[in-house]
């Protein structure tokens, strides 16, 4: 499909919702180069900042130091977008379908309020992964975010539906005010996970420090978790058999909220 290479290191952020496979479909290279971007406070064209070439694959590939390029893959609906390096804030925000693969780190608000599709981040994610924008009642609603590294604060906060899997550690308030959906954290959970949790599931594979408003229920093998892990394995996310077949301690909470949510903690014994 199309390859984009950033021409130079950006001094100020470049904002563009143009970089999606949907936007490039059925457009000539000249038309793609004419798509609008905002550089600092100036309106410009995509071609001013990127070398644009066709490639032999079905993917859109973006190269360069994109840590200051915001909204890559935002609102995309289909296709595959590969970012070869770091990406800036709001990557895949409000996306509805397709797949984004980021081979480096991503900034804050990646997958914010997404409604479908898959984001696979091979590095670290910033704050507010899959979160709701301020003032908005709901965050991520359907879709999958896979983060191979660490994630910042408020990962999955106010999530309504969907699945977030984080291989590394998370910052504070992971899954805060979760409405539903599932967050798996294979590293260490930061402080106050699930604060204000209504429904939904946070799965901790390392012993977390829980708020006192979570009540212990039992140790058991949740059948649905196998379903999710099976799905993750199918997406190329390896999961150890001990997690797959293991016992989990169930805590109901947050009892200051609806209290119909849960934190499942992998039981090593």
């Amino acid at each position: 499909m199309i390859s984009l290479r950033l021409k130079e290191v950006l001094a100020v952020p470049l904002e563009t919702e143009a970089i999606t496979p949907d936007n490039f479909q059925d457009k000539s290279l000249a038309e793609i180069a004419n798509l609008p971007v905002v550089y600092g406070n100036q309106v410009a064209k995509l071609g001013d900042f990127f070398e644009i070439k066709p490639n032999q694959s079905d993917e859109v590939r973006v190269e360069g130091d994109l840590s200051r390029v915001k909204y890559i893959g935002s609102k995309m609906k289909q296709g595959t977008l590969v970012v070869e390096g770091d990406a800036g804030m709001h990557l895949g925000a409000q996306m509805r379908g397709g797949k984004i693969i980021v081979q480096g780190n991503v900034g804050d608000w990646a997958g914010a309020e997404m409604r479908g599709g898959i984001i696979h981040i091979w590095g670290n994610a910033g704050h507010a992964l899959g979160c709701a924008y301020r003032g908005s009642p709901r965050g991520m609603n359907k879709g999958v975010i896979l983060c191979e590294g660490n994630a910042g604060n408020e990962a999955g906060a106010t999530m309504r539906r969907g699945l977030i899997a984080i291989r590394g550690n998370t910052g504070d308030f992971t899954g805060a005010f979760l409405i539903a959906g599932t967050i798996l954290v294979f590293g260490k959970l930061g402080a106050r996970p699930g604060a204000g949790l209504k429904r939904g599931t946070i799965v901790a594979f390392q012993p977390p420090t829980l708020l006192p408003t979570f009540q212990y229920d039992c140790v058991y093998k949740p059948a649905f978790l196998r379903l999710i892990m099976q799905y993750l394995r199918g997406l190329g996310w390896p999961i150890e058999d001990e997690y797959f077949n293991g016992y989990y301690r169930r805590y109901s909470g947050d009892l200051t909220a609806l209290g119909k949510g849960e934190i499942l903690v992998y039981d090593q014994h």
Partner: peptide, 24 residues
């Protein structure tokens, strides 16, 4: 009222609490 749902890969599943654990 204690049942919970999970939406995975476009399909919805129900987790019904039972004495042995959960029926999915």
């Amino acid at each position: 009222g204690y049942q919970m749902s999970k939406y995975i890969q476009g399909r919805r599943y129900w987790r019904i609490p039972v004495m042995e654990g959960e029926f999915l």
